[in-house]
Computed example of a mutant assay.
Amino acid sequence: MTTPPGVRAPRVLQPRVLQPGTGPVPGEEYLPSTPGTVRWGRLPAGTDAPVLSVRPGTTVTIDTVSHEGMLPDQGSDPVRWFGRHGVAPQDVLTDVVEIAAATPRGDDDGPHVVTGPIEVVGAQPGDVLAVRLLEHRRRVPYGVISNRHGRGALPAELPREGEAVSVFAPVEDDGEHARGVLPLTTDPADRRRTRFPLAEFLGVLGVATPGGQRPHSVPPGRHGGNIDITLTTAGSTVYLPVAVPGALFYAGDPHFAQGNGEVALTAMEASLRSTVRLDLVPHDEALALLGEISGPVVRTAEHLVPTGMDPDLDVAVQHCVRAALNLLQARWGMDEHLAYAYLSAATDFDISQVVDQVKGVHARIRLADFEEPTA
């Protein structure tokens, strides 16, 4: 039926809560998060068996799960914890409840629930996996922002008295705009609120590392992992250097919003249903497009985004500058001294995050400044 001129078409709203297997599933394959398809606090290793196998070019819809509401300092009971903040039991995700109850997590493991790995048939070390982020749907109308373990940007100052702080943040969605909401004070008589825009993305995107040792979920690296780059919203692509046959892709740490830096340790964490297309870029083609990449590279509609990581923020910046130089030389044949001058004059180097043990920096190289290669 055609909408008459001058009449706004009715907006079709998604269900308030996207429980596993309900609501839109646009991918060719669907991967729910269950105790059998996730790891809690560790990333997949090269010897791990895939939970799904797909051919390059396949679209996969993944139900990712936030760890907030599940952790020991929150009582390890999501229904009870979210209930204290006014969330009805039916509005707590059943996969969150099941994973909290049935998935092992060691005391030294990270907090993140990681879904996967997914084998991409034919992927070999030296190739690059292109993860095209097609869609992120919010699974719940609320999120959580936490400061704990003395691991924020001010570890000796906050949280006060060493007590973990988890701030519940509801979502306001009027059908046109969605925003997170926080009170200005804890005084129940104070009705003032601050509202901030949402930009959903996955904090953890990665491929398996060689061998049988599963990496901790917190520090990012060459494999990707907990990169926490806010530019990985729907419409962007993340390029990851393949290190093991099949790539073994995984995803997790869903966010509704984050400021660059993520200074309090977490940002607005909440579960997403994300649809990705997993494409494979052969080694020679990847060299021409991106150079010999040493870690994740992001592409948005406007930018190519190389990354740098190190426990020392100064060194992370240096790694990012070198990665940007390599990309400019490989993709556009730019002389090194001219590429260095261009980066200084025209490229923003942003702090991705300073709270994941290994700090991250990313550079935004404007695609509009260059003619695309014809190869």
Rank of each mutant, 00 (worst) to 15 (best):
V51N: 00
D314W: 06
C320H: 02
H362E: 13
V60K: 01
L280N: 04
T347H: 02
G75W: 13
S33G: 12
Y239L: 12
A123K: 01
S274H: 03
N326Q: 14
R192W: 09
P254C: 05
G295M: 00
G211V: 04
D77I: 10
P170E: 10
A339W: 02
E68T: 13
P89M: 14
V12L: 13
G221C: 12
T233L: 04
Y239C: 10
W332G: 02
L338K: 07
Q357T: 09
T237K: 10
L202D: 00
H112F: 14
R273G: 07
Y30H: 04
G46D: 02
G150F: 01
L184W: 15
P89K: 11
Q357N: 15
G46M: 02
R80K: 14
E29N: 07
L31N: 01
M334E: 00
L231K: 10
V140L: 00
I99Y: 03
N326M: 11
I145E: 11
V355I: 07
I293V: 09
A301F: 09
A100F: 03
P35E: 10
Q258R: 13
T347W: 00
P373L: 03
D108G: 13
R192T: 09
R80N: 12
S217K: 02
G6H: 11
L278H: 00
M268V: 15
V315S: 13
L134R: 05
R273I: 08
P24D: 07
L182W: 12
A169R: 14
L304V: 08
A375T: 14
P220V: 01
A323L: 03
G41H: 04
P220W: 03
P117T: 01
V92I: 06
R148E: 14
P44D: 06
R39K: 10
M309E: 14
L71R: 12
A156C: 09
N326C: 11
G152S: 03
R148W: 12
L278W: 00
L184Y: 15
G259Y: 15
L31Y: 00
G106E: 12
M268Y: 14
L290R: 00
V121P: 03
D348E: 09
E269S: 10
V263C: 13
L31P: 00
D190Q: 11
V96H: 13
T232H: 06
L18K: 06
A169H: 12
A301M: 06
L134N: 06
R42F: 08
R364V: 11
S352G: 15
L338V: 06
T3L: 04
R39P: 05
H67D: 15
